[in-house]
Design a protein around this nucleic acid. Structure first.
Length: 475
RNA sequence: GGGCCGGUAGCUCAGACGGUAGAGCAUUUGCCUUUUAAGCAAAGGGUCGCGGGUUCGAGUCCCGCCCGGCUCACCA
């Protein structure tokens, strides 16, 4: 028998032993008096003498360490990323509960009732008077010193990563703070949160290859959206003058430390402003999100201090510094040599018209449009423009894209007749922007890989895990 | 897709030159009523990612494949 089977069988048989003692191996509701973080926050400052007026508590958590010493012992319970020590002695908990204690495994989830005290070495602990059994673990937990290091297991079994590595938990707590900060701020500015289709008959709003799927009852092909943009602007036409959506986009392209096939985008649209208005708003949003997520507008990323309170604004032409370059060549040069050098928050504005089919022309400068992107730590984190609201011009732009598609550009935009029709009813002048939530989270949590800010990043399934056949020519 | 690196016990890792697979933690048994990487004593535990090849002999060398990481290309 392999060790893994042996450990498993051991724990299966322990379930029967726990039942024989009169406990359920998988408990029901447990009414705790405090969470472990609450106890630590409330009582860490109390001295041993102050705790002599007994504070009785009921707490629950997962056993993360255990030290048995004959007729007594210590353990640490882990809850919400924090640990509290418990002290169990036979004469305090009684025969039955002590027999349970002797059968506990690392990773089991238990409840403890008892009073707070400080040990000889001063650690705040619960002096147990009663134990409750809440859930059995059948597998052994990652090692206590090094945690879980195997990157593949960390991503495939994220729950183990979250148990073993407290800093991972913090990344996702910070991510949630960023999202809620954005929501709070946009709502304060009068934006309405909406949801638009993920399944789209025509995909648009970005240059990317899509995922394809099929609806059985309608018997039609559909695309997973690459962006919500064209739907959000239909809503602006409809009079929802400030709208935003925070949701997933899907792009059928490469995977890297900065790219996951599904990723989270914040898009927002504001009627009667332009890209300059979007610049001001995005500086404010990002600065405040940094403060709400980390406590400061200045954050450290990979050894660099990045100041979200101070954005530089530079035109793409000035950033590249070569007046002879135009169109795609200008963008190529920018992406090749300039982008990675933009560490501090930088707004790069005025893009060539060729690469910007949804942006409004720059008055007096027919080769350029009113568009900007924001770069931080060498990464693009936002893309914004004054929205093109002239339906005839929009149709010409789509036609330019179709010409590119004819020449084999798989990422060129599709014609969207329904969108042109919507614009034909009149869309007010509008500024719009998309902010990549995953990348902002990377910077604000000081992580190098996008997989570390996505709970379940896409990995190749192991063995039989995929339920679908692979289609060789499905692109 | 290309290049580089990795996959050895449940976890974290060692294994020159090819010569009977190791450590710590975890597990099991015994002792231990304020320990905290608890301690002491003993024990069990491995298709060395998978498949071929070379060899008297392969964790180690060669070939192919699988999975992952970094990186380049594409992209946000």
């Amino acid at each position: 028998m392999s060790l893994e089977d042996e450990l498993y069988q051991q724990r299966i048989s322990r379930i029967a032993e726990i039942e024989a003692l009169g406990f359920e191996p998988y408990g029901h509701r447990f009414d705790f008096t405090h969470t472990i973080p609450q106890i630590l926050a409330e009582y860490t400052a109390k001295t041993a003498a102050e705790l002599e007026q007994r504070v009785v508590v009921k707490v629950a958590g997962r056993i993360s360490t255990i030290r048995r010493m004959g007729k007594a012992g210590f353990a640490h319970l882990l809850q919400n990323g924090e640990r509290l020590q418990i002290y169990i002695r036979k004469d305090a908990v009684g025969e039955k509960d002590f027999a349970l204690y002797e059968k506990l495994d690392l990773g089991d989830i238990i409840g403890v009732e008892g009073y707070l005290f400080r040990t000889r070495t001063g650690e705040l602990s619960v002096h147990a008077e009663r134990l409750y059994f809440l859930a059995k673990t059948l597998f052994s937990m990652p090692e206590k010193w090094h945690g879980l290091e195997d990157v593949e297991i960390r991503y495939r079994q994220r729950y183990l990563d979250l148990i073993a590595n407290p800093e991972v938990r913090n990344v996702f707590v910070t991510r949630a703070k960023i999202v809620s900060s954005m929501r709070r701020q946009l709502e304060a500015h009068g934006f309405l949160e909406v949801e638009t289709p993920m399944l789209q008959p025509v995909y648009g709003g970005a240059a990317a290859r899509p995922f394809r799927t099929h609806h059985n009852t309608l018997d039609i092909g559909l695309y997973l959206r690459i962006a919500p943009e064209l739907y959000l602007k239909r809503l602006v036409v409809g009079g929802l003058e400030r709208v935003y959506e925070i949701n997933r986009n899907f792009r059928n392209e490469g995977i890297s430390t900065r790219h996951n096939p599904e990723f989270t985008m914040l898009e927002f649209y504001q009627a009667y402003t332009d890209y300059l208005g979007m610049m001001d708003l995005s500086e404010e949003l990002l600065r405040q999100a940094a403060i709400d997520a980390t406590g400061s507008a200045v954050v450290e990323y990979q050894g660099e201090k990045i100041d979200f309170g101070n954005f530089r604004r530079v035109s793409m032409r000035d950033a590249v510094g070569d007046p002879s370059l135009k169109g795609k060549a200008l963008v190529d040069e920018f992406e090749r040599n300039i982008e990675s050098t933009l560490i501090q928050p930088t707004i790069v504005f005025d893009y060539p018209i060729e690469v910007s089919p949804l942006s409004k022309n720059k008055p007096g400068d027919p080769d350029f449009v009113e568009r900007f992107e924001i770069y931080v730590a060498g990464m693009e984190i936002a893309n914004a423009f004054t929205e093109l609201n002239d339906p005839a011009e929009q149709r010409r732009r789509f036609e330019m894209q179709l010409a590119l598609r004819e020449k084999g550009d798989e990422e060129a935009h599709q014609m969207d007749e329904d969108y042109v029709r919507a614009l034909s009813y009149g869309m007010p002048p509008t500024g719009g922007e998309g902010i990549g939530i995953d990348r902002v989270t990377m910077i604000l949590t000081n992580t190098r890989s996008i997989r570390d800010v996505i709970l379940f990043p896409l990995l190749r399934p192991v063995a039989q895990a995929s339920g679908l056949p692979n289609h060789e020519h499905d692109s």
